[in-house]
Simulated scan of single mutants.
Amino acid sequence: MTELSPSDIAKDAAAAAAVRLVENGMRLGLGTGSTAAFMVRRLAAFVKEDGLQLRCAATSKATADLAESLGMKVETLDDIGWLDLTIDGADELDPDLNLIKGGGAALLREKIVASASDRMVVMADGSKVVETLGAFHLPVEVIPFGWQTTKQLIDRMLTLMDLDGRPILQRKRDDAPLLTDEGNYILDLSLEAIPEPARLSAALNAIPGVVENGLFIGLCDLAIIGKPDGEVVELRPEGAEE
């Protein structure tokens, strides 16, 4: 067995703690990304050992394929309807538990699934906790038609918000445009800092051609932060009940 890096130990610890929130009979959203992969493996073992009956919806084809390869059944969100809990990772989270997500290009499905859940729990290692969002690039999913016009409109909007001069790059894979599970493109905004994430999110989604952006505002109820020693700490939005 390959020895885990300190970062992976932290991710696995957060995943293990998150899986302990799962109860028999739950309708569960499965996130996407490296930490979510640890969670899916932990969950599959939990289901097998305890015989849990769950209804699971995945936020990406990659997550669905992993879960099914481990013996779990994955259904569509439309078949399940509303979810009790979604467990996912994050690329950044701030003290209010606002998030940047989309490093794995699944932000659209991730936001739909999180919005269709009673609770969203995020797992992360300590490097993802920041005072101000924006050091990680902000992914924006856009339709391929007229995407360069959409990019220009985003650039103009950023100028109006005093965020001008930041690079906007089309995400690629093997020198070709990366396609999301919905067949769209991803534009990555290198903003450095986002002082008003809710305002920026609304402005981005008002632009024709933008499908969704990677700012998750007010969706996360609990963040479980793993440490390299295997311990975890829990973070909640200010004023939230434990």
Rank of each mutant, 00 (worst) to 15 (best):
M1F: 15
T2P: 12
E3W: 04
E3F: 06
P6M: 08
S7K: 15
D8W: 09
K11F: 00
D12Y: 05
A14I: 00
A15L: 00
A17Q: 02
V19Q: 03
R20N: 13
L21A: 07
N24K: 13
L28Y: 05
L28G: 04
L28W: 04
L30G: 02
G31W: 00
G33K: 04
T35C: 00
T35V: 03
A36Q: 02
A37N: 06
M39K: 00
V40W: 04
R42E: 01
L43H: 02
A44D: 11
A45D: 13
V47A: 11
G51T: 05
L52S: 08
L54T: 12
C56S: 12
T59C: 01
S60P: 01
S60C: 04
S60H: 00
A62Q: 07
T63G: 00
T63E: 03
L66F: 08
L66K: 07
L66M: 10
G71L: 08
M72N: 11
M72F: 13
K73V: 15
L77N: 06
D78K: 13
G81M: 08
D84I: 08
G89L: 02
G89Y: 03
D91T: 09
E92W: 10
E92G: 12
L93M: 11
D94I: 04
P95H: 05
P95V: 03
L97F: 01
L97W: 01
G102M: 10
G104Q: 09
A105E: 08
L108K: 01
R109W: 03
E110A: 02
E110G: 02
V113H: 05
V113P: 01
M120L: 12
V122P: 04
V122N: 02
D125H: 14
G126K: 15
G134D: 04
A135G: 13
F136I: 14
L138V: 12
L138M: 13
V140K: 12
P144H: 05
G146S: 15
W147C: 10
Q148R: 15
T149N: 15
Q152T: 15
I154S: 05
D155W: 06
M157Q: 11
T159V: 12
D162Y: 06
L163A: 02
D164E: 10
D164H: 09
D164T: 09
D164Y: 06
G165H: 06
R166T: 02
R171Y: 13
R171C: 13
R173C: 07
D174I: 09
D174R: 15
A176Y: 11
A176I: 10
L179R: 09
T180N: 07
D181S: 08
D181L: 08
N184P: 02
I186S: 08
I186M: 11
L187K: 11
D188Q: 12
L189I: 04
A193L: 02
P195G: 02
E196D: 07
E196I: 03
P197D: 01
L200M: 12
N205K: 14
A206Y: 11
I207T: 14
I207V: 15
P208V: 13
P208K: 13
E212D: 14
L215C: 07
L215Q: 06
L215G: 06
F216G: 00
I217R: 00
C220F: 01
D221V: 02
D221N: 10
D221E: 06
L222Q: 07
A223Y: 04
A223L: 06
I224C: 03
I225F: 01
I225Q: 01
I225W: 00
K227D: 14
P228I: 12
G230M: 11
E231K: 15
R236G: 10
E241G: 07
E241L: 05
E242W: 05
E242I: 04
